[in-house]
């Protein structure tokens, strides 16, 4: 286990790194079930959440994770518009660092934004989602959820369905699941398949029915209407739901004990049928709980030694 400075991507990780973080997260999960959900691991540390894109869940999850570890948190949320006015990301970070921050958690619309600030600050940087690149803590929490449910990730067959092109979750999930020995099949409208996605190790299967066949887990991705710009990549939400949404009929083609995951927030009735939202095979809320534990593990790993 090498000493990691930042968590910028799953691409930078080795299998042992993920295993270590998952085992740490399992321990922290126990903390979350205590009546007093707090440990003093990061007392006196200040964690700065830089959320340049709207986010409720991820931002709250990081804040809670930090507070459970007794760290102080401050957050800034900025809309894209102020960046367009020429606000300089590097300046913003250097200014906050000068106020003696200990860690940056960043979400930004530009791919590579976390890498950019990691290059200019001495503080650890955690990527909470950069453009259409990666969302590493989401992949870790998905791994944790699968590990807890199935006991092991190796050998699982995971189908990821939807807007792969705009999904940082898909990229991080594919990389993490492949590292952990799962099989990844991706499906969705061909207009939403990135070129040469096989380079990440996933197999493309444009026929959704074929893609979900014998799967252990289906990860539905959110249609990211805000990222599409230009011409719509599919004719209508109605058509999307009919051909690419996860319906009970499609779900019945998976293995009997298969589960459904979704990074949220769900466009109900588009990528996921409402009937499937609240069945026991749907692990969406387990994912959310895993999220806090995984983020505690990441924060503790990057900051505890400092």
């Amino acid at each position: 286990m090498y000493q990691m400075k930042h968590l910028l991507s799953i691409r930078q990780l080795k299998r042992e790194d993920i295993e270590f973080l998952l085992s740490q997260a399992e321990a922290f999960k126990e903390v979350l079930s205590r009546p007093i959900k707090k440990v003093p691991a990061l007392r006196g540390k200040t964690i700065v959440n830089l959320f340049f894109e709207p986010s409720t869940r991820t931002k709250l999850s990081f804040e809670l994770a930090a507070k459970r570890l007794s760290a102080d948190t401050v957050s800034i949320s900025k809309s894209m518009s102020s960046l367009e006015k020429g606000e300089d990301l590097i300046d913003t970070v250097k200014n906050i660092e000068a106020m003696k921050a200990d860690c940056f958690v960043i979400r930004h619309r530009a791919s590579g934004a976390a890498h950019l600030i990691a290059g200019v600050t001495k503080c650890p940087v955690i990527n909470a989602g950069d453009g259409t690149n990666e969302h590493p803590t989401q992949a870790l929490l998905d791994c944790l959820t699968l590990k807890e449910h199935f006991g092991n990730i190796r050998g699982l067959r995971v189908a990821i369905i939807g807007d792969i092109l705009h999904s940082r979750v898909a990229r991080s999930d594919i990389l993490a699941l492949m590292l952990m020995g799962a099989e990844c099949i991706i499906s969705g409208p061909a207009t939403m398949m990135p070129k040469d996605i096989e380079a990440l190790g996933a197999r493309v299967c444009l026929d959704v029915k074929e893609a979900v066949k014998d799967a252990d887990c289906i990860i539905c991705l959110r249609i990211q209407r805000e990222r599409q710009g230009g011409a719509r990549l599919f004719p209508s939400l109605r058509e999307y739901a009919m051909f690419f949404g996860l319906s009970p009929e499609i779900f019945s083609l998976t293995k009997d004990d298969a589960v459904i995951m979704h990074p949220g927030p769900v466009n109900k009735g588009v990528e996921l049928s409402p009937e499937l939202m609240n069945i026991k095979q749907t692990l969406i809320f387990q994912q959310v709980t895993s999220g806090v534990a995984v983020r505690m593990a990441v924060l503790a790993m990057l900051l505890a030694g400092q």
Binding site: R11, S111, G112, D130, G131, T132, N133, E134, R168, R171, P194, K195, D196, I197, A199, L200
Partner: peptide, 9 residues
Amino acid sequence: GRMSTILGL
């Protein structure tokens, strides 16, 4: 191509 997919650009 391959690299734009890896980098999400």
